[in-house]
Simulated assay, not measured.
Amino acid sequence: MDISVIIPAYNEEGRIGNVLSVLMGFEMIKEIIVVNDGSVDQTTQEVKKYPVTLIELPFNQGKAAAIKRGLEASSGEWILFLDADLKGLSKEHLISMIEYAKRENIDMVIGTFSKGKFITDLSHKIAPFLSGQRLIRRALLESMPHFEHTRYGIEMMITEYARKMGYQIKKVKWPYVYHIPKEQKRGWIKGKFEKYAMYCNILSTVFEIYFLSRLKRSKKFQKYSS
């Protein structure tokens, strides 16, 4: 089992090192790819301290586009997506995910937060399909249609596609792991704006998946039944 790790990063200086340090010396990890999505801080300099592949995007293109670029550059049989701002991550969390992936007929394992911070725990309890921490068979991702336009809706798009195509999904709890709030990373006003943009991306993806697709199917049905 060989794993390619893809970490999309946008202005994550002071945080991405916490994630990269956990990945060092992990024998099942074939490669680590960080996609710097147009950061204007010291993210690049921090990433260069580690023996990883760094891809620099010239401007911010969104999480989905960064993931797509990382996938194109990767070669692992399995792809591990990790967010760049995780706190509390340990090798034990990764091992728990990998052990499930080794089991027969499991195609995607999603890591969900618990016992960390109230807000992130609650969001993963209500909507675990929004988690960005997931280990996925490469074949699943390569069979997906174009998804780079979804930005922050990428996790929902992958989950819905996997369900639709009959892939087997497993959730595993990651205790004491959480995200740094955007308000803390960017400042209150900019953080709120980025969080609002993120939720708009997610809602747009929900609309595309559950409403536009059903409308298209309905029109096709009317066309062929008339």
Rank of each mutant, 00 (worst) to 15 (best):
L141S: 08
R217Y: 05
L215W: 12
G38S: 06
L80Y: 08
E72C: 08
L57H: 04
S4V: 07
E160L: 00
S114I: 15
I126Y: 15
R151G: 06
E155D: 15
H146E: 15
Y50T: 05
H93S: 08
I55F: 08
K164A: 06
E72G: 05
M28H: 06
R214K: 15
E77T: 09
T159M: 12
E183N: 02
S75K: 14
D121C: 13
V35M: 08
A127Q: 13
S218T: 04
P181E: 09
E46L: 12
I79Y: 04
I158H: 02
Y10H: 09
S114H: 10
W78I: 07
E194I: 10
R69D: 11
F193H: 06
K164T: 11
F221N: 07
E99R: 12
P51D: 07
F193V: 11
K164L: 10
K164F: 12
L71Y: 00
V40A: 10
L130M: 15
V35D: 01
D83S: 13
K192S: 14
H149G: 01
N60L: 05
G153M: 02
H149M: 00
G191L: 04
K117R: 15
M198F: 08
G88N: 10
E72Y: 02
Q42W: 10
S226T: 12
L86S: 13
Y100F: 11
S114L: 14
M24F: 03
I119V: 10
Q184H: 00
S4D: 08
S74A: 12
P58A: 08
D41T: 00
D37E: 00
M108H: 01
T53D: 05
D83P: 09
E72I: 13
I189A: 12
G187A: 05
L89I: 13
E12V: 12
N36S: 14
K48R: 15
T43E: 04
L135Q: 03
T43F: 10
G17F: 04
E92G: 04
G17E: 02
L130E: 13
H149I: 02
D107W: 11
E155S: 03
K182E: 03
S4G: 06
W188C: 04
R134F: 10
G153Y: 02
G132L: 03
I126E: 13
I7K: 09
S218D: 06
G132Q: 02
L20T: 01
T44W: 01
H93Q: 01
N105M: 01
E160S: 11
C200F: 00
I154C: 04
M28Y: 00
I29H: 03
L54A: 06
V177F: 09
G116D: 12
P181A: 03
F113K: 14
T53R: 14
K190F: 04
S21Q: 13
K48T: 11
E155K: 06
W188M: 09
L140I: 13
P128T: 15
G25I: 01
E104P: 02
G14S: 08
S75C: 08
L215C: 09
L57K: 10
E46Q: 13
I202P: 01
E99A: 11
N60F: 03
S143G: 14
N36P: 02
R138P: 05
V206Q: 09
E99G: 05
I55Y: 03
I79A: 10
K190Y: 03
K171Y: 14
N201M: 00
R214W: 07
G25R: 05
S96W: 02
K216L: 06
I95L: 08
I169Y: 11
